[in-house]
């Protein structure tokens, strides 16, 4: 309880320090391009419904992308980790595609999947799925050979091997991959939401930018930050529930 209180205090202190530095920058630069945090927060309080709507649109897109990436990426990552032939065949392709800036394919996706949500979600999936696949593959790699032998000694079926060994063993790496993926997904949406949509926090920020309304733009940036905090907090909670042994180790 005391530890939790301390952590909350530290987070609050970190946020106040950030606002303080922002205010300092605003005072030093003396330009309307960097509005003061007080002004920005005051503006945010005047448009809560708009910010909530745009944030929700982005959160839903991130959730859909992450969900589908998990459904496809986890089994694919396990396959790469377990079957050496699959790894030999697919790893070069994976390494080739992983560093390519997938955002450049947005026009292709729009052409193939239309101007609606599908093309944006598929773009984000295309960006984060490699991260998830590689995290899971590395998680499988790190399972001790001894653990497989322990399972062999109990004469387990393939399904039991996944249920009791592989799936729990890859969870820590999967959560690390998810944390990175959510960050990348939010950053990618900022770009993807600029086309053929009027909803999403990315749209909100760039729309304000084109209007040169910097207070509105910064309120969008701050809202995007809060969306990030919310998603990471949810992920931390889920991780604490699903990987309790790591929490105790720490």
């Amino acid at each position: 309880m005391m530890k939790d209180k301390k952590i909350t205090e530290n987070k609050l202190l970190g946020f106040i320090s950030f606002l303080f530095l922002w205010e300092l920058l605003h005072l030093l630069l003396k330009t309307h391009t960097v509005p003061s945090p007080v002004e920005t927060i005051a503006y945010m309080l005047t448009v809560p419904a708009a910010l909530a709507t745009h944030s929700c649109a982005s959160i839903l897109r991130v959730a859909a992308s992450v969900g589908i990436s998990l459904i496809v990426g986890v089994p694919a990552g396990i396959l790469l980790g377990i079957h050496k032939t699959c790894r030999r065949l697919l790893s070069p392709l994976l390494y080739f595609l992983y560093p390519i800036p997938k955002i450049a394919f947005l026009p292709v996706f729009m052409l193939l999947f239309g101007l609606g949500n599908a093309s944006k979600i598929i773009l984000v999936i295309f960006i984060i799925i490699f991260q998830i696949m590689l995290s899971v593959r590395d998680g499988v790699d790190q399972i001790s050979a001894l653990y497989f032998r322990v399972m062999d000694s109990f004469c387990v079926s393939a399904l039991q091997r996944y249920r009791y060994l592989i799936l729990p063993a890859i969870l820590p790496q999967l959560f690390t991959g998810l944390r990175i993926s959510i960050g990348i997904a939010l950053a990618s949406l900022f770009f993807a939401e600029n086309y053929a949509t009027t909803y999403g926090i990315g749209y909100y920020i760039l729309s304000a930018w084109t209007k040169m309304n910097y207070t509105e733009m910064f309120s969008g940036i701050l809202a995007l930050g809060f969306v990030g905090i919310l998603l990471f907090q949810i992920l931390d909670r889920v991780e604490m529930h699903m990987v309790p042994w790591l929490k105790k180790e720490k």
Binding site: S144, L146, Y147, R149, V150, D152, S153, F154, C155, Y164, L165, P168, A169, L171, V243, W245, E249
Partner: peptide, 19 residues
């Protein structure tokens, strides 16, 4: 192949950290 009537206690135990 391994059999159910044969148990094995490993030198490094092989206890799973998540259990």
């Amino acid at each position: 192949a391994p059999r159910k009537d044969i148990g094995f206690l490993f030198q490094d135990l092989g206890l799973f950290p998540w259990q």
